[in-house]
């Protein structure tokens, strides 16, 4: 199997140099990192724990709004800012005010989403299988509508976020690196997490939750912690995406259930759910295909993406990595050990 350290080095070098190598694509590559974060965090529940959430996009949107409220709130009255009279204020942020607000906003988004995930866990983990999927889908759809009816945050009209206190090119590069760091942090954290007892416990919940309960595993505790992990990173990604876009509104930007909300599922499935690298691979392939079809097959792009998802679900249900594991099990360590016992193995190796 390809040594992971080469993959790490390759990704890191690409990540750091990309804005200089491909200056015209900074935004698209920033989005790629967010897509990787989406797929990784979706896979924590959907792939590793077997809970297919269609509502994870809620944390993205909530993170975006929490961050916006905090960023504005440190300087102005939010209700005034979002009222028609507040339109002139968007550019009135000194650099110090902007960066303090942004830092606090990102932090608040992450923490707020974790708190929300704890609350949702109390309700939604009573549901299993398809009921959990539909329940969380309802949550995502409701969240967009609820925020749209809330005038304090601008309702359906949305909010124009504080303007970056420098030129747009610096803004692109600034947020590019924040996206890179958040995606890498997600990867490093999950990689560690899946190697602890936690990883095995949520795998056990995926394979047979009743058995896990019968063996005394604290299932509720693990499920809640897993969703909190996803929520934490999704909240950060929402805060970043909102600031990159500059203008947020509930249905298309903050809670885009049928685009980002479905993409995160499709990317994890494409790469191979339940693996660490699968969602990353899926996100890269999916994002490339998406950007290429948007450029060269405009008008047919949704049909192309739909076809990709259908082929994936019908012929390659295990995704690219799952398929590779079935084809070359040796490469993934699925081998019969010739040694008869742990004792003879030690003798053999010494």
């Amino acid at each position: 199997m390809i040594k992971e350290k080469y993959l790490h080095a390759g990704l890191l070098v690409f990540g750091v140099l990309a804005p200089f190598l491909f200056p015209n694509y900074t935004v698209q590559i920033s989005l790629l990192w967010i897509m990787i974060l989406f797929a990784l965090t979706w896979d924590t529940l959907g792939g590793q724990m077997g809970y297919n959430s269609l509502g994870n996009i809620v944390f993205f949107g909530v993170g975006m709004y929490i961050s916006a409220i905090v960023q504005i709130g440190v300087v102005y009255d939010v209700a005034l800012y979002t009222s028609p009279d507040g339109a002139a204020l968007t550019g009135n942020f000194a650099p110090a005010q902007y960066y303090t607000g942004l830092a606090l906003g990102i932090l608040a988004a992450a923490v707020g989403c974790v708190i929300l995930a704890v609350l949702f866990s109390q309700v939604f983990f009573g549901l299993r299988g398809p009921y959990f999927a539909i329940g969380t889908l309802g949550l995502a759809l409701a969240a967009g509508e609820l925020v749209g009816a809330w005038d304090y945050v601008g309702g359906g009209g949305g909010i124009a976020l504080p303007v970056f206190p420098s030129d747009p090119k610096s803004q692109g590069i600034f947020f590019y690196y924040l996206c890179l760091v958040s995606a890498l942090a997600t990867y490093v954290f999950l990689r560690w997490l899946y190697n602890t007892r936690f990883g095995l416990a949520i795998n056990a919940i995926r394979d047979d939750e009743e058995k896990a309960e019968a063996m005394g595993i604290h299932t509720k505790r693990h499920k809640t912690a897993a969703w909190c992990t996803s929520a934490f990173f999704l909240g950060i990604s929402g805060a970043l995406f909102g600031n990159m876009t500059g203008f947020i509104e509930p249905l298309e930007v903050a809670f885009p259930t049928i685009t980002f909300g479905i993409f995160m599922v499709a990317m994890a499935l494409l790469g191979g759910k339940g693996t660490l690298w699968g969602p990353i691979l899926g996100a890269i392939v999916f994002h490339l295909i998406k950007e290429v079809t948007w450029t060269y097959l405009l008008g047919w792009q949704w049909i192309a993406l739909g076809t990709l998802i259908i082929i994936n679900v019908v012929y390659f249900q295990q995704g690219i990595l799952g398929w590779a594991r079935d084809k070359w099990p040796d490469l993934f360590g699925l081998t019969v050990d010739e040694a008869m016992s742990s004792g003879s193995e030690k003798r053999g190796s010494s």
């Binding site: 007892r197 795998n203 056990a204 394979d207 047979d208 009743e210 058995k211 063996m215 339940g274």
Partner: peptide
């Protein structure tokens, strides 16, 4: 269980490890 229940997508060592007393 009468119908044997194991964690079918995990390997044998992992199945045993996750069964430590909780």
């Amino acid at each position: 269980f009468q119908q044997t229940r194991i964690y079918s997508k995990m390997n044998c060592v992992e199945n045993i490890l996750i069964s430590v007393p909780h």
